[in-house]
Structure formats: C-alpha cells, structure tokens
C-alpha cells in the first residue's frame, strides 16, 4: 500500500508541472495585463513603474524560472492585485469552498444514490421514470439559471433563506448555493447508480445468491450495493474535481467567498500569481481526492489489491 501511495504521489509531479507551465504560458500570451485592468484611467508613468515593480518587463522564461523556483519552496508568489501572499489569499478562501463542495456533494449523494437505487429496483416503473426525468433535467439545467430560480423561490417568495452572501458561514447561507451546485452531480449519481445496479442485478453471482434462497433484501444489501459502490465511488471522486471548477459560477452568483470567485476575479484582472495559485490548488485537490478514492477501492472491495 505504501509503495502504491508513493508511486501515485510521484505520478502527480509531471501533472502539476504541466499545469504550472500551461497556465503560465497561457497568461503570458493572452492579451491584457494587470496593469491595464487596474484602472480605466491610469497614468502611463505609473503603469511603466508598475510593470517594473511586478517584474512584467522581464522575459517570459526569466519570470517562469523565478516562479518555479519559488514554487519549489512552497511560495506561490505575491498577488499583483492585493499585494498579499497568494497562499494567504487562498487560505482565506479555502474553507468556504470546502464547505460549499462538501455540502453540495452530501446533497447530491444523499438524494442521487438512493434515487438511482430505487429507480433500478423497478426499472420502467413510475419511480424509475420520474427519477430519470429529474436526473436528465438536473444534468441539463444551467447553474446560473437554477440559482436564480432557487433565490426567487426560497428567498423572495417563501422567505425561508437568504438570497446571497456568506453571513456567519452558517447553514442557512449554505443551503441555496450547495443545492445549486449539487443538482448536477445528484442527477449524475442517480443515473450512474441506476445503471450500475441494473447491471449487477443481472450478474451471475446475484443469480446464484438468489438461487441459494437468499432474501432479496440480503441480495441487494450484500451483493448489489457493495459492488455498485465501487462504480459510485469512482463517479464521486471525479465529481469532486468537477465541483471545484463548477463552484466558480455558484460562488460568483451568491457572493460566496471561495476559491472559485478568487479565480474569476484574478483571471479578469490578469493577476497571474493568484490565477496560478488557485488553479494549482484545484488541481492538487483533484489529485488528492482521486488518490483517496483509489485507496478506498481496496477497503470496499478486498479483491482489489495494490501491486
């Protein structure tokens, strides 16, 4: 297991380096710079000094080398905009993003997985049809639109929840952003679970279990559910990464102080260190979660071994 972990960690290094290089090159070639985005009415002399101060007057390879050298020591650089260390900026935003993503994931798993399971137990029935209508709709609806509809309904019409903001970070502020973010993975989990369960229900070992006189409840609990869990877990892992990216829209819509809104603001203002830092954190989180999922495979299914 340890050697497996070690190998997986080693494999992340080229991925991280590729991401670092790609983002750096991309933001070096796209037009626009922090200097022009700082003001519509800036003074040319100040602009020149700002470029010098931020090192933007140096060749790209010099800047890249300097950035990678700093990164190797854990220094993400200093934000062009706020002039704060990027690590500090990300640290301030990490908890709200984690809150949002875990809440969205909890919502989507708690609703989506049972929905898919119930649908698969009686395929073609009313529950199955309704569940799949919900799933397809959930996958199709744009988050921005859904967010506005939820705001309108639960904040403006029903008055149950605040329409925006982080407040004290409490549950009532979290519900609407989490549901907005969670609907799409919920739909995916429902579809994935249904497909997995339907496939396993027709497998030889399930037929054997039934023929041995095992009750349907026990068959589902001990054979179907456990085997379906591996597939569901893979989807959950991938969705964690996807949610990090999708949180961008939701955070902006709800004025949620997470890494997603930091990323958008930084891209718009060409705050390259903050963009690189935010993307790197998203990528590292994605890799870490997938590593965790790989480890969990072995826990759920003892047949999987890490050679």
């Amino acid at each position: 297991m340890l050697s497996f972990l070690f190998r997986r960690l080693l494999q992340t290094i080229p991925t991280v380096l590729a991401v670092v290089a790609l983002v750096f090159v991309l933001f070096s070639v796209v037009p626009g710079s922090i200097v022009s985005s700082m003001s519509d009415d800036a003074d040319p002399q100040v602009e020149l000094r700002l470029k010098k101060q931020l090192g933007l007057d140096e060749p790209v390879y010099v800047r890249f080398g300097s950035y990678v050298a700093k990164l190797a020591t854990g220094d993400f650089g200093t934000s062009f905009r706020t002039r704060e260390p990027v690590t500090f900026m990300i640290a301030k935003r990490a908890w709200p993003t984690l809150q949002l993503i875990f809440a969205a994931m909890a919502f989507s798993v708690v609703i989506g997985v049972p929905l898919g399971f119930i649908a698969a137990l009686k395929p073609g029935g009313i529950v199955d049809t309704l569940a799949m209508v919900v799933a397809v709709s959930g996958l199709s609806i744009a988050k921005f639109w859904l967010g506005l509809v939820l705001m309108y309904l639960f904040a403006l019409k029903l008055g149950w929840l605040p329409s925006f903001g982080y407040g004290d970070g409490g549950l009532k502020y979290l519900i609407l952003p989490a549901v907005t973010l969670g609907v799409s993975p919920m739909a995916l989990f429902a579809r994935t679970t249904r497909a997995a369960v339907l496939e396993i229900m027709t497998a030889d070992f399930v037929r054997t279990a039934r023929s041995k006189g095992m009750s349907e409840t026990r068959v589902v609990k001990w054979h179907v559910m456990r085997n379906a869990l591996v597939i569901i877990l893979t989807t959950v892992g991938l969705q964690f990464g996807a949610l990090m990216g999708q949180a961008v829209v939701v955070e902006k819509l709800y004025s949620w102080p997470g890494i997603g809104s930091l990323l958008v603001d930084s891209v718009l203002q060409r705050d390259i260190p903050a963009v690189q830092g935010s993307i790197l954190v998203v990528v590292l989180s994605f890799l870490a979660i997938n590593l965790l999922i790989d480890v969990l495979y072995g826990v759920i299914d003892p047949r999987i071994r890490y050679a």
């Binding site: 506005l148 904040a155 403006l156 329409s163 903001g165 004025s255």
Partner: peptide, 18 residues
C-alpha cells in the same frame, strides 16, 4: 458593503429587502 457583481442576483436581493 456586499460584493454583488451579478445584476440578477442583486435584483432578487433588493426585492427581498436584503
């Protein structure tokens, strides 16, 4: 002072007296 870049979200919040 709340950061609210999205006009539609601001509209809901204003109508909701937030």
């Amino acid at each position: 002072v709340a950061v609210m870049g999205e006009a539609a979200a601001r509209d809901v919040a204003f109508r909701n007296k937030e």
